[in-house]
Design a binder for these strands. Structure first.
Lengths: 178, 178
DNA sequence: TATGTCATGTAACTGGTTACATGATTGC
DNA sequence: GCAATCATGTAACCAGTTACATGACATA
């Protein structure tokens, strides 16, 4: 039974853009929030049910044949503003790659090199995708667009930093092979 | 009852550097792995108990007056190598700052600016600390030093990217005010 | 009429955190 | 002898994931 305010924020936030079914909500979170946020499937419906009980969300009466879109109520919009203003609780860091690399001497440079190269490729791919996404966002003109652009720029900056580090790290590890 | 192989990796890894008590282990994980890894207190002892049951770790007989240092057995060293070679399972992203910023239009530029500035300051502080740490690691000469240096360089690269992004983002948000 | 996708939910489990309880050792 | 810190552990939660169960609707 998940009940973190962070999940609530994501759910209400996504519904603030447009009313959706739970199913569509999940897809929206994966697609548009995916590069910096994640909700597992089993969290969406309970979160929606709680939001409905709290009066933050209601089932839209609009004539849908299957499924019922949820829409934010005025209280929900208020609640979202409150949640957004709350300080983000920082996720404790857990970087599996660095954990392995830190003790890398135990397995030698070859295995480490493979890991670093793979991470570098993932980062390079992410950087490219975010470049494309950035170009898209810049074309949008609604009031939310500049904010969304900032999040894309963040992701891109991090992805580039990872990619460049991986390249340097690979060179160092290659030098350790001899 | 935590039992992830990641916790096991961190515990065995730390003990591979030198035998320690559970208490010291926790301190070591916070201090030296802190910038990319985290274990909560309640995980260390159960993990040690499991490692002891599996024969990966034994209580050192060395004449300590209080507490008993744990040391890796040969099986433990073997197990650590296996764990290090396993692919890291990527932590799903959850960036609270970006989640808020994405829906930033709902609360306006001022609140967003405050969040971004704070994040920027944290990143700048981290970058400085990692600069200092990097200088230290470069002085070390054991076979593990180059690997540890890579992890510090990673942290530094990310911290700098965050710091620089925050500065640019603050400028954009400042422009959105009026 | 069968297949795929949209849709809604639940239960069991894994992983992780927090708060508490307890005692030994060291330094003043 | 007292306080601080070192040390070991447990129990009760909280958070999050996965796998399962179910059915409606669209379309080929």
């Amino acid at each position: 039974m998940p009940r973190s305010p962070q999940t609530e924020t994501a759910v209400l936030g996504a519904l603030s853009v447009q009313p959706m079914t739970g199913y569509a909500l999940r897809a929206a979170i994966v697609e548009t929030l995916g590069h910096f946020w994640h909700e597992s499937f089993g969290q969406i419906y309970p979160a929606l049910a709680r939001a409905e009980a709290a009066g933050h969300v209601r089932r839209a009466t609009a004539g849908r044949t299957s499924g019922q879109a949820f829409e934010l109520t005025d209280e929900g919009r208020e609640r979202l503003r409150d949640l957004l203003r709350e300080p983000a609780d920082p996720t404790p860091p857990r970087n599996g790659l660095l954990l392995r690399l830190f003790f890398g001497a135990a397995i030698g440079p070859d295995d480490c090199l493979a890991m670093v190269r793979e991470a570098g490729e993932r980062a390079a791919g992410a950087a490219e995708r975010l470049d494309a996404l950035h170009a898209e966002v810049l074309d949008e003109t609604d009031p939310g667009a500049p904010y969304r652009a900032l999040t894309v720029e963040y992701g891109r900056a991090i992805a580039r930093a990872q990619r460049d580090w991986a390249e340097r790290a690979a060179a160092v590890l290659d030098g350790l092979r001899d």
